[in-house]
Write a protein that binds this DNA or RNA. Structure first.
Lengths: 164, 164
DNA sequence: TGTTTATATCTCTTCTATCGAGATATTTGA
DNA sequence: TCAAATATCTCGATAGAAGAGATATAAACA
């Protein structure tokens, strides 16, 4: 094959992309089910998930990460604050900003809901050797990076769209 | 370790589950961006994705797969039919049923939107040997199966929930 | 320092996806 | 044949989200 140009995907590579899409579809459905199970709206739960990974961020950053309008994020934070998933905190360095701090106390219902998946995933992981699991984990990190790049790309191109 | 009981996840296994959650969060955000880019509502695009994988299914099956109420699915199909993503077809064997047939002609905008991700994923796949890619693909299939089971589990338990 | 511009969040209105209950049509089984 | 079950659709009510503008603070500049 050529040096860095991928001429044509092999059947194995195409199969791989199909599996990734299938996993993606299932992931979305699963996350929506988790949200419903917790009594949260989809974007509310998505925000909880983002905050879990990123830690405290400002309302504006959450707006960018979720793609929601700032007005929608204000209402979203109100709901999460009422349910004690997060609390607002003023930024002493910039008093315009509102930092959303995730609260994990009293939130074992999230853990409970995730527990069956977590258990199943650990079982799946245990079926691989250390080397295999390391390869898979390394792959997952790279796939996440790819998605981050694609999200960046898509959200920037979507902003500049004309009507059909 | 014991025969089939997983006593305690290893750090590598915990790291793996964290990576899976991170990938899941990014997947949801990405899919929402794709939907927005195509001018579709989230569940409309999710339905297109489900239909792409499953092929023609009935409105009731789509209701179950998406978790939407049947009345919502009716409106959803109306929108997708108007945009020529699908068409309704009567089931000759059971005239109550409505089969939703995905339409792929004139839908290269979906392909276009996915193209950058597809290209990036093929490039990622090409960075692995045949054996490594086979392992990863096998893993993706198993992870999808796990998610299917978890979705089943969650959607059944969510249906029987009392208020807090 | 005083003024202008930019930024961050919030408020408020409008729109519409979704739910949920009931209606309609068809099938199944007694 | 008739009742019960099933599949989809209709319709009213609710509430998440967008979008524009308001408010408060910060940064830039003279």
């Amino acid at each position: 094959m050529s040096s860095h140009e991928q001429a044509q995907p092999t059947p194995e590579q195409e199969q791989f992309t199909l599996l990734m899409r299938g996993l993606g579809t299932r992931t979305v459905v699963y996350q929506q089910n988790v949200a419903a199970s917790l009594g949260l709206y989809n974007n509310d739960f998505l925000s909880v998930d983002i905050l879990r990974e990123k830690g405290p961020i400002t309302a504006g950053e959450l707006s960018k990460l979720t793609g929601l309008a700032t007005g929608s994020v204000t209402a979203l934070i109100d709901r999460l604050e009422k349910n004690r998933y997060v609390r607002r905190q003023n930024d002493p360095n910039d008093r315009r900003k509102v930092i959303i701090v995730p609260l994990y106390e009293n939130k074992e219902d999230v853990i409970d809901t995730y527990l069956p998946l977590h258990t199943a995933m650990v079982t799946l992981a245990a079926s691989y050797t250390d080397e295999e699991l390391a390869l898979i984990s390394q792959f997952l990190g790279k796939a996440s990076t790819v998605l981050d790049e694609q999200i960046d790309h898509l959200s920037s191109t979507t902003r500049s769209k004309s009507s059909s």
